[in-house]
């Protein structure tokens, strides 16, 4: 990664974009990444969705506060105006919800899984777009708070709900930190896999 003209520039993983051209709207894509490449993988997934396929979407931010995520995306030139964020982290920090973005919705906690689903459905209903995606960042963060069985059940419902509604779901996870029960369920229910879990160090 390098800095050019104030923007961080890094090499996008073109393979992800290529792979995404193959998926349909009612697909669910499991995106595996490692600890060190998660941002690159996330950006490489989002950019084609926003720029190539001109989709709108919901970004469920469980790993970091939405403001931080937005700033990170903006620092690499990603226009997030077409994304509505559901922030599961900032309500847990006093004053955390006092941020200057109007495309951020807050849910009190990552344990309120049903609220996250309903809030996503609500945003999608208000989105004036027929091409939508839902991005979960990440299963590992949700696993910190939620029981394995409940999380597995949730992802099952989540994936099926959006498949039924022709909304592309993209689920980010770091496989070696994901509970086995959850991981095996993801493997079972997701229609596609973008596997960048093995990080190659040059």
């Amino acid at each position: 990664m390098s800095i050019v003209g104030g923007l961080e520039v890094f090499e996008l993983d073109q393979g992800i974009a290529d792979q995404l051209t193959e998926v349909s709207l009612n697909s669910s894509v499991q995106v595996r990444c490692g600890n060190s490449n998660s941002f690159m993988v996330t950006a490489s997934t989002l950019i084609p969705l926003l720029q190539m396929f001109e989709m709108k979407g919901v970004y469920i931010s469980a790993s970091r506060g939405a403001a931080e995520v937005i700033q990170a995306f903006e620092s690499v030139g990603i226009d997030v105006s077409q994304i509505q964020f559901i922030d599961l982290v900032s309500s847990g920090i006093l004053g955390g919800t006092n941020i200057p973005y109007n495309n951020v919705h807050f849910v009190d906690s990552p344990i309120m899984l049903e609220s996250i689903l309903l809030r996503t459905l609500y945003i999608l209903q208000t989105n004036q777009s027929e091409r939508n995606f839902v991005f979960v960042d990440s299963v590992n963060a949700l696993a910190i708070y939620n029981d394995d069985r409940m999380l597995a059940e949730y992802l099952h419902t989540f994936i099926n709900t959006f498949r039924q509604q022709d909304v592309l779901s993209v689920i980010l996870n770091v496989p070696d930190q994901t509970p086995p029960l959850v991981l095996s369920n993801l493997d079972l229910y997701c229609t596609d896999l973008v596997d960048r879990g093995q990080v190659v160090i040059h």
Binding site: L113, E114, L118, Y122, M150, T161
Partner: peptide, 16 residues
């Protein structure tokens, strides 16, 4: 969930 689009419902997670 109470939203400006009204009450929204989804089945509650069995384990929760």
């Amino acid at each position: 969930e109470l939203t400006p689009l009204g009450v929204m419902l989804t089945p509650m997670l069995k384990w929760g």
